[in-house]
Design a protein around this nucleic acid. Structure first.
Lengths: 278, 278
DNA sequence: GGCACTTCTTGAACGTGTTCAACCCCCGGC
DNA sequence: GCCGGGGGTTGAACACGTTCAAGAAGTGCC
């Protein structure tokens, strides 16, 4: 979706550029590369304030899981973490920023899990199905409060929106995974380069649709969504496969144009070639 | 999306069945058939309490438009309407229910406007484009605070979700419009009956995508979304048109199945044939 | 008119997210 | 050793959505 400009809810100065020396530094407890942030105040993390920040985030995430998002109050988080309410706000300028932790962590775990699971498969449809199922499994523990998460993410002005700038790193990770889904399959070599370039984003969009379905799914163990995946992946594979044939040229060309002009720009990729037009 | 069971936030008894003699009774000021409700308390509207209810709703909608949703407080609405806060809550068990008015009104206005505009056109793509553009025009005044609206609507547990039971009437109106879009076109007679039955819902889904795009659109006059419509409608028409040819049989069959099994049930249409299963 | 009963109406009170002026603490410079 | 200053920390205070016990205003019945 279009608009990508956003401003933080109100809070302090925007963390200027560099994101806390985002190199390795993955704390073993979580497996997150910890390049997230951008949610709280800015970068000046001198020493143990880092610890305070982590403590608050860990506490919040644990409590969200235990009691749900709405039920967990900022006061309770602060109390449980042994700090003051104001202190929590010093690090996270709004409650919703505490969710970003989930988002990043899940994206990372999902990518890792999916890669492992599909390592020995080359069939595209199967690889895609594995990737999507992997997401469902990774996200399963959080399904209960996914609604509240989703609600926040749906706000276009929120940094949690999957289309926002702040989500860019996580989104890039996810898209990269789908690139691998495709590249590692027997299908990739048969397709033209341009399509291979475009498809990962489309597949990510497929995941977004699945997520949407999942959020609304009230069946036991989200069985309905799982069946949706089971059914929709072979179909997606077939459509992509058929796109190679000459009859479909016109449609494929249209579709490509639509994706390039209206979807990629939305998720932060600058449109490739844009003739001066008019 | 799946789960369709929902309970009102908390409020009073659910209006039992009949919706306040929903026959004619359209107040001239708005053009709404006033079959909405279901948001506030139950049906027992004896006399002038109806007036109080309308007063509160009108006031709220006006203020939402003037200042936005979040900025308009319940206290302010009550004060402006000359009633107490508690009174507002007597009629609308939560602030979000005040939005439903918008939803219903817009759906109604849109349908009326679109019908008028496409009356003299038979080309399917054009009719579809008209219908979608009509929505954009109808919704334009509310774009500014659409984000907050959308945020609420995105909550699966909210009655404002386009997939919820409470939204059923509005949704039915919209789907019906798209049925007319198709039926009034030159394309309809060429398609098999089953597809004609399915397509209106798919077209409504197309609108939902446009809405999604629109909500995130930050360009001047949502120009980007308008271009998206301009580009996507002919393509949709072409896809549908091509579906008639034999080569596409298998895909079309798959697509139909997917729609029938996973989309229709989600928006409140009971799946047609479901073998007793187990 | 008086009584029981339901429907409306009120405003204080509660719990929440968020803000802010003040304070603490530690570290470098003298 | 002390002083200055800035990052870190505090908790009272604010504004908001929502609840609730109490009462007012009808309404039907005798």
């Amino acid at each position: 979706m279009p608009g990508n400009d956003r401003e933080r809810p109100d809070g302090g100065p925007v963390g200027s550029g560099d994101v806390e020396s985002a190199s390795d530094r993955n704390d073993p407890g979580t497996g997150v590369p910890a390049a997230e942030l951008a949610g709280g105040r800015a970068q000046p993390k001198t020493d143990k304030s880092e610890a305070t920040r982590a403590l608050i985030l860990e506490t919040a995430m644990r409590m969200f899981q235990e009691r749900g998002y709405e039920k967990t109050t900022m006061r309770a988080i602060a109390a449980e973490a042994g700090v003051s309410v104001g202190n929590a706000y010093y690090y996270f300028s709004a409650k919703e920023f505490l969710i970003q932790g989930f988002y990043d962590r899940m994206t990372y775990d999902h990518a890792a899990d999916a890669r492992k699971r599909m390592a020995n498969t080359r069939d595209f449809a199967t690889r895609l199905e594995i990737a999507l199922n992997s997401w469902l499994d990774t996200a399963a523990p959080y399904h209960e409060f996914s609604a509240q998460f989703f609600r926040t993410a749906a706000d276009p002005t929120s940094s949690l929106s999957p289309f926002s700038n702040e989500s860019h790193p996580a989104r890039a990770t996810a898209v990269e995974l789908f690139r691998e889904v495709l590249q590692g399959s027997e299908l990739a070599p048969k397709l033209d380069a341009e399509l291979v370039e475009l498809l990962p984003d489309v597949l990510w969009l497929h995941l977004m649709v699945v997520v949407l379905y999942w959020v609304f799914d009230r069946t036991e163990d989200t069985e309905r969504t799982r069946e949706f995946v089971r059914r929709s992946t072979p179909m997606a594979a077939r459509v992509i496969n058929l796109s190679r044939y000459r009859i479909f040229r016109p449609i494929v060309r249209d579709a490509k144009g639509l994706i390039q002009d209206f979807i990629l720009p939305t998720i932060g990729k600058t449109a490739v070639k844009q003739p001066p037009a008019e």
